[in-house]
């Protein structure tokens, strides 16, 4: 095939994609996930960031099953949820089964214009039992960050210190559905937008959980949106089986114990990954 032929083919593909999009000829699922938009548009934009900027290395991705449900529980950091996007891309690009990761997000995300729309289209839904169970029962891979905004909004001097794991709702859901829990430890996201302070007045005004002050934001304006090029690792832990434990789903003792175990695993893995990494910006 000549070079021109390839160009023609590429252009034709693009034309088909654009006309499909313009005529509404694509499918979304009941959660609003738009696979075509995510895979053809969002992930390609993130890919250079993943490969060249953060140089993400994944470890033990084969702990994630090739099919069927699993609940990925990760540490959350980085001011905005770049870690979630990188995790999504890691599973799609580097897992042999090219798995799509569905994410759970807080309700403020869906209240916020544009952010909520983006979240749903790329596969996220409300962090709630009904939604989580529905996705897991459909065999989806589900990602959750139990620290929530306490994790993303913590100051830089608290980096890699896991925050409270909420009420452990993710454990109940895993137990109720018999889904394995896979601890995910992410190193690198803490350094991309180091938080030095918070302006609560502005946060309230904008209806967001915190208004971050970093070395470059808001000082440099839009330039402050450029993340620092830290080196990333994503390590997938051994799956924790929950099969046949559905009657324990509403036992607070069991739920807290299991949540603690997951948290401890992630914390220890973070320490060993940090040691291995050395400097953040190598």
């Amino acid at each position: 095939m000549s070079g021109n032929d390839r160009v023609a083919e590429k252009l034709d593909e693009l034309y088909r994609l654009v006309s499909r999009r313009l005529s509404g000829d694509y499918e979304v699922d009941e959660f609003g996930f738009d696979p075509e938009l995510t895979e053809q548009l969002t992930l390609p934009v993130l890919r250079p960031l993943y490969r060249k900027w953060f140089r993400v290395e994944v470890i033990d991705i084969d702990h994630v099953p090739a099919e069927g449900p699993a609940l990925l529980v990760g540490n959350h950091s980085g001011t905005i949820a770049v870690d979630a996007m990188m995790l999504q891309l890691a599973l799609f690009d580097e897992h042999p089964a090219h798995r799509r990761l569905r994410l759970l997000a807080a309700d403020f995300v869906f209240k916020t214009p544009l952010l909520g729309e983006y979240a749903r289209k790329t596969g996220a839904t409300l962090a709630s039992n009904p939604d989580a169970e529905r996705l897991l029962r459909a065999g989806e891979l589900l990602g959750v960050f139990p620290e929530g905004v306490k994790g993303t909004g913590k100051p830089v001097w608290d980096r890699y210190k896991l925050q409270r794991f909420g009420r452990g709702g993710f454990v109940s859901t895993a137990l109720a559905t018999g889904t394995p829990i896979i601890p995910v430890s992410i190193v690198g996201a803490e350094e991309i937008y180091p938080i030095l302070g918070n302006v609560p007045v502005l946060a309230r005004l904008l209806g967001i959980p915190y208004f971050p002050v970093t070395p470059t934001f808001p000082l440099l304006g839009p330039l402050g949106a450029v993340p620092l090029p830290s080196k990333w690792f994503i390590q997938f832990g051994e799956p924790i089986s929950t099969e046949g434990m559905s009657d324990l789903a509403d036992d607070p003792m069991e739920v807290f114990n299991l949540a603690d175990r997951v948290k401890e695993t992630i914390q220890q893995t973070l320490h060993s990954l940090l040691e291995r990494r050395g400097g953040a910006f190598r």
Partner: peptide
């Protein structure tokens, strides 16, 4: 609302 599950049963 933003606090509702995606699918109502």
């Amino acid at each position: 609302s933003a606090r509702d599950p995606a699918v109502f049963t």
